[in-house]
C-alpha cells in the first residue's frame, strides 16, 4: 500500500509531533488521524466515516488507557480487524502479556534517542506498507 492511514493515539503532544516529524523526515505521505486518548479514538472509529488501516497507541493515557481501549476495540465485530500496535516507554511484562492476549500486531518500545525512534518508525511503516491491510 502506497498510502496508508494511521490512527495515532497519544496524549503527549510532543510524541504526536515526533511521529509526524518522523514520517515527514522519512518522506512518507501517509494519512495520520490523531486522538488524545482511548475515548476520543473510539469516537472517531465508531463514526466509521474514515477508518484507519493501522492503529498506533500508547498505553499510559488519561481517561481510557491503552489496554481499556484495546478491549473495547476487540469487542467490536468490525473494528477488531484493524491491526493495533503498542508504542510505549514501558516494557512491563504484565502489560505485554495482556496486550498480546487481547490481540495486538506489535509492541514497540520508544527508544531514548530521537534518531533511534525514527529508525524504528521507518521499519514499522515499511513493514505495513508491504502488508495487505483490510480496506473498509
Amino acid at each position: 500500500m502506497e498510502n496508508l492511514s494511521f490512527l495515532f493515539i497519544e496524549d503527549d503532544e510532543i510524541e504526536v509531533l515526533k511521529f509526524k516529524k518522523s514520517l515527514k523526515k522519512l518522506g512518507f505521505t501517509h494519512k495520520i488521524l490523531e486522538a488524545k486518548n482511548g475515548e476520543e479514538a473510539l469516537d472517531i472509529l465508531k463514526k466509521k466515516q474514515e477508518l484507519p488501516n493501522v492503529i498506533l497507541l500508547d498505553l499510559n493515557m488519561p481517561k481510557m488507557n491503552g489496554l481499556e481501549f484495546l478491549k473495547e476495540l476487540k469487542e467490536d465485530p468490525h473494528l477488531r480487524y484493524i491491526p493495533a500496535i503498542i508504542v510505549t516507554t514501558s516494557n512491563n511484562h504484565q502489560d505485554m502479556l495482556e496486550s498480546y492476549n487481547l490481540g495486538i500486531a506489535g509492541y514497540i518500545i520508544k527508544p531514548l534517542r530521537y534518531e533511534d525512534y525514527i529508525k524504528k518508525i521507518q521499519r514499522v511503516v515499511d513493514y505495513w506498507m508491504v502488508n495487505e491491510v483490510i480496506e473498509f
Partner: peptide
C-alpha cells in the same frame, strides 16, 4: 512502572526537542 514511564517519556521528549 508508572513513575519510570512518566520519567522516561519526558526524557524522550527532551531528546527529541534537542534534536
Amino acid at each position: 512502572h508508572i513513575v519510570s514511564h512518566d520519567l522516561k517519556s519526558p526524557l524522550r521528549s527532551i531528546n527529541a526537542l534537542i534534536s
